[in-house]
Design a protein around this nucleic acid. Sequence first.
DNA 1: TATAAATGCAATTATTCGGTTGCGCAAATA
DNA 2: TATTTGCGCAACCGAATAATTGCATTTATA
Lengths: 113, 113
Amino acid sequence: MRRDVFQAIADPTRRAIITLIALQAMTPNAIAEHFDSSRQAVSKHLRILTECELVKQEQSGREIYYQLNANKMKEVDKWLEQFRKIWENRFNELDKVLMTMKKKALTREGNRK
Amino acid sequence: MRRDVFQAIADPTRRAIITLIALQAMTPNAIAEHFDSSRQAVSKHLRILTECELVKQEQSGREIYYQLNANKMKEVDKWLEQFRKIWENRFNELDKVLMTMKKKALTREGNRK
DNA sequence: TATAAATGCAATTATTCGGTTGCGCAAATA
DNA sequence: TATTTGCGCAACCGAATAATTGCATTTATA
């Protein structure tokens, strides 16, 4: 039962659900209408999303509205942070290190031949 | 063979590998030393990461240096973009809509009792 | 009150996944 | 040249996954 955010957003259907309910809270039935899979399948996805706190429930009579807990998505953003430096700033210190290593590797290859 | 970035970063070991080689390119053996799993297991992870272009290979004799393709990580960042508005700006238009829906739901619940 | 609707939960099944083991091949080394 | 090293690939295995089907429960409605 590995229920972390990364595993949750790995499934394309779940990502679609997340995008769908980000705009407005929806019931499982309403969500299922947007997909080919059954209501039960959607319900299962919602359970997984709920377990890792990516979505919140809001009971209203016999209907349950699911809505995104955008705050939880920050966890992914937080993990991404460490790489943002690399892709945004192509010529920073880290990049220099990589360049140096690349040169070394090429030199070694040259020596071999 | 669903080989997209999201599925690739779902596995914690793969995320650890990514973080590891983000700092400097490494060979499979060197990477495997950082984990409990075997070299072959790491190699399998590297194949998956390579297939979805999250890492690049650099042959040097019989050694193969793997390094992060940080650019590919942007895909995750791009998907996250749609939610950033929500979590960063708690009182925007979208939030108002959600608030309204919440009120409606509560009202309906009140009527029921 | 009887029926319909909305939902969750359990059992089942086919598929995928992560890992190990064993092998073969190319490159380095003694 | 013989041996060691670094690596990828294929076969196999147990666990997890996504989906379906069937059922039970609660709430709304005729």
